[in-house]
Design a protein around this nucleic acid. Structure first.
Length: 724
DNA sequence: GACCTGCTGCGGTCTG
């Protein structure tokens, strides 16, 4: 039977009205998989391959063909963005109109009257955010079975954003709570364009039976890729930025494009330069900035202008335009500076070349320092360029990062405990453990850790929960106050601002979303500082001006470079014969310099003594493992700076030479990995945990203790060969 | 050496 024939007639009618010549490959696959089995399904296909329709055409057909008893929603669609929900809702409405199936978008911008009506007569497709679903559990917990008993499937869009993120764990927990509430399993349908590890996504969708998830893949329709990587020397003042802007202006003007500038500040810098170039030539404006600090109206107007395609438009943006809502086809994607992950590079590139016969175009710009005798070794190795090449090559090989997935997520567990207590109005400890840990998304949590956590939540400083005489867990005073505010539903932290103080003067504020500890360097207000003290109570960081000479390498969040990317960077540095064809002459020259400097500095070794008590170490690992080693060294008294796959280490007379200490680590001697005075309060509910629980959480997510001896061994081996 | 995401219920005022 043809896939088309398996669809209900109103759906067939809609397809005919679209004038489609054929169903796409992924849609055919999905129709067969969904209609012929009850399996969970993972739909993985490139952007604009018709994934949403692939999931919904057969599911809407099923809803249409099935006689339902009583009221209740038929399908549950969950997406990470409000804009995505609104966008998809209007597309689905057209399909559902003929079948008379209601489409109900439900998020913070939807009026309460619509929600009240839908709650009164639930039916059709509920399209909701994780946070709004959380709110439903907490405000109308008793109503959950009536609303959801008839749900046929849960469709999770952009599922890659959920894997092992706080929101993802929250959503997984909500889905398992939903299944417990309606006393039966719910079929899962995941949708994504950017999955590094299909098996991991299957485990996310169905932790009990990952092998029963049908994986549907389609590469068809991935366009030809044209790419160029251009190198620029930093030069005086903003010479490089000026030259890049001029190049962008020349090549992008007159069409729709996206420029990913890397940070909000860079977005403003390039938007300003491009705007002035338009003004200078008396041309109408077509370059506009887009990032999260700009007003909603401004962002929305720009998105609409891009989508309507009437006027040529280029958005200079941060990751705001990387995901989700359809902004139409884009001629070219420019990336300034090395991206942070291959996954996000792939997602960005997916915005270009979506029309048949059109190529996707990537323009990568890299700025490197001018070298002199004082140059830092990271400049000498051209690490920005090397990382860009590594990422582009991995992109071409269709690889992207899998998520890190051993984290305990204790902050999110605190959130879910409070939410279940509210939903049930009080609950027995064993039942709570069953719902959240045994059956839910917190399966790594032992009963002992769970008890510790409950104790921390009940203690006099926290007062999140309390034990009633009948053994039930209830909300405590602080818990009551937290859950009564609407800011509770989101599980992720909006970064806190710490005041930066030097010489008892406030320099300004800095969002803290990384571990800041004494002896770390940070850049602030264009100057270099050394952190002397971190006061979590007063939210202040006391700094003093740091020594000139070495550029500080800490400021902002450290991006998580994956091990595979770091390994590829070393193989690019070590293989003189490999010459990517997409480099311009300056970039090719940078690469040559990088290789000759690498050979000169390291000369086949992995650890190099640069002077008295001063070493450079090539860890050849990604950020987590490199950071793990850095913590072990810092706790031993070394001063350590972290780079991509490298450490710069300074010792002193009182501690042993670095190779000796590495030998101890290689022999498996235990190391102290935690910095007791580091800021471990990173997530929303961390302030309610004990020191011990915080350390456990950080160890599970931020470092990789197990790999430490192996890293030390490979560094110490005479000639450690990096695999290509 | 970074970015992004989300939010209820109720009471007040205004409009037709």
């Amino acid at each position: 039977m043809l896939a088309y024939d398996k669809l209900a007639w109103p759906v067939q009618k809609w397809i005919r009205s679209q004038g489609w010549a054929d169903l796409r490959d992924i849609q055919t696959q999905a129709i067969h998989a969904i209609k012929d089995s009850h399996d969970d399904v993972l739909i993985a296909a490139s952007t604009a391959a018709g994934k949403t329709e692939a999931a919904f055409l057969p599911l809407i057909s099923e809803v249409y063909e099935t006689e339902k008893e009583g009221e209740g929603f038929d399908l549950l669609y969950i997406a990470p963005l409000k804009a995505l929900i609104s966008d998809q809702a209007s597309r689905l409405e057209a399909i559902c109109q003929e079948a008379e199936i209601p489409v109900v978008p439900w998020h913070g911008d939807i009026s309460s009257s619509v929600k009240i009506r839908a709650r009164k007569h639930p039916s059709g497709i509920l399209m909701i955010t994780p946070e709004s679903l959380e709110a439903m559990f907490m405000r109308n917990g008793g109503d959950i079975p009536r609303l959801f008993h008839s749900v046929r499937a849960a469709i999770l869009d952009e599922v890659h954003t959920m894997l092992d993120s706080e929101r993802g764990i929250q959503l997984q927990s909500l889905l398992s709570r939903l299944e417990i509430a309606i006393q039966r399993p719910i079929r899962r349908v995941g949708i994504s364009a950017t999955l590094g590890d299909m098996k991991q996504a299957c485990r996310y969708l169905q932790p009990d039976n990952p092998e029963n998830v049908q994986i549907l893949k389609s590469d068809r329709g991935s366009p030809e890729l044209r790419l160029q990587l251009r190198g620029y020397v930093r030069g005086d003042k903003d010479a490089a930025e000026k030259n890049i802007s001029q190049h962008l202006f020349m090549h992008l003007r007159g069409s729709n494009n996206l420029i990913f500038a890397g940070s909000r500040q860079n977005v403003e810098i390039y938007a300003d330069k491009l705007r002035r170039l338009c003004e200078k030539q008396n041309l109408p404006q077509e370059f506009y900035p887009h990032h999260a600090s700009l007003s909603r109206d401004h962002r929305f107007a720009l998105e609409r202008r891009l989508k309507q395609s009437q006027l040529p438009t280029t958005a200079i943006c941060t990751s705001t335009l990387e995901l989700g809502v359809d902004i139409g086809d884009v001629n070219c994607v420019a990336q300034i500076g090395a991206p942070f992950s291959v996954a996000s590079l792939r997602q960005r590139l997916g915005r270009s070349g979506r029309r048949a016969g059109q190529a996707a175009i990537l323009r990568q710009y890299v700025i490197e320092d001018e070298l002199d005798s004082q140059s830092n070794f990271s400049s000498q190795l051209r690490l920005g360029l090397i990382r860009s090449i590594a990422m582009i090559d991995l992109l071409l090989e269709k690889w992207c990062e899998p998520a890190h997935s051993d984290a305990l997520h204790l902050s999110t567990l605190v959130h879910q405990i409070l939410s279940v207590i509210v939903e049930k109005g009080g609950i027995d400890k064993r039942r709570l453990y069953f719902i959240l840990c045994k059956r839910g998304s917190f399966r790594q949590i032992s009963t002992a850790v769970f008890s510790d956590l409950l104790r921390a939540m009940a203690c006099s400083e926290s007062q999140l929960i309390e034990h009633a005489d009948n053994g039930l867990l209830l909300l405590g005073a602080q818990g009551e106050s937290l859950v009564s505010h609407y800011s509770f539903y989101a599980v992720f932290q909006t970064p806190e601002e710490y005041r930066i103080v030097s010489d008892s003067k406030t320099l300004g504020t800095l969002p803290i979303n990384n571990m800041i500890a004494p002896e770390m360097m940070l850049i602030f207000s264009g100057r270099r500082w050394l952190v002397k003290e971190v006061d979590d109570q007063r939210k202040t960081i006391v700094v003093i001006p740091s020594n000139a000479g070495k550029p500080p390498k800490f400021g902002g969040d450290i991006g998580n470079i994956h091990d595979i990317v770091a390994e590829r960077m070393f193989s690019i540095l070590e293989q003189p014969d490999y010459q990517p064809i997409y480099l311009d002459s300056i970039a090719a020259n940078f690469l040559q310099e990088a290789r000759s400097n690498f050979a000169q500095i390291f000369a086949n070794a992995r650890i190099v003594e640069m002077g008295d008590h001063y070493w450079i170490v090539a860890t050849c690992c990604g950020t987590i493992k490199t950071t793990t080693l850095a913590f072990a060294l810092r706790n031993q008294g070394y001063h350590v700076e972290i780079y991509d796959g490298f450490l710069e280490v300074k010792g002193n007379d009182k501690i042993s030479p670095l190779p000796d200490f590495l030998r101890e680590i290689a022999d498996g001697n235990p190391c102290n990995l935690m910095i007791s005075d580091a800021n471990l309060n990173r997530e929303k509910f961390h302030p309610y945990l004990t020191e011990k629980l915080l350390e456990m959480d950080a160890l599970s997510s931020r470092v990789d203790e197990k790999s430490l001896p192996a890293i030390a061994q490979s560094i110490l081996s005479d000639r450690a060969i990096v695999k290509a």
